[in-house]
């Protein structure tokens, strides 16, 4: 089957991109509406982890293994950002 333009892995990666975009839209809705600042921080954290999953899917789809480095960098930066935000929130109480 050389004529098949889209392989099974690419098709599943595309479908999972659709599902991830739906998840991102739902999370953005919570980011805009979230009634507290802590809700928005949780939504930002979830957005970043969804992006890590999307980078993994894109790495599989394009067959370029170097793109996985950006997933690890994103994981590092997001953890630092969340910790800094949480400490800022906790300090702003007093």
């Amino acid at each position: 089957m050389q004529d098949a333009t889209v392989s099974l892995v690419e098709l599943s990666a595309l479908i999972s991109f659709g599902v991830l975009i739906l998840a991102l839209l739902l999370t953005f809705w919570r980011l805009f509406r979230g009634r507290d600042l802590a809700d928005r921080v949780v939504a930002l954290d979830l957005i970043a982890i969804i992006l890590i999953g999307g980078i993994a899917g894109y790495t599989v789809m394009t067959d370029v293994a170097v793109l996985l480095n950006s997933a690890s960098v994103l994981a590092l930066i997001v953890f630092l950002g969340t910790v800094a935000f949480a400490r800022y929130l906790e300090r702003s109480v007093k």
Binding site: S16, V19, A23, L26, G53, G57
Partner: peptide, 10 residues
């Protein structure tokens, strides 16, 4: 694995 991971994100 890809589809179930995306479902967990959903």
């Amino acid at each position: 694995l890809l589809l179930s991971g995306a479902l967990f994100f959903l």
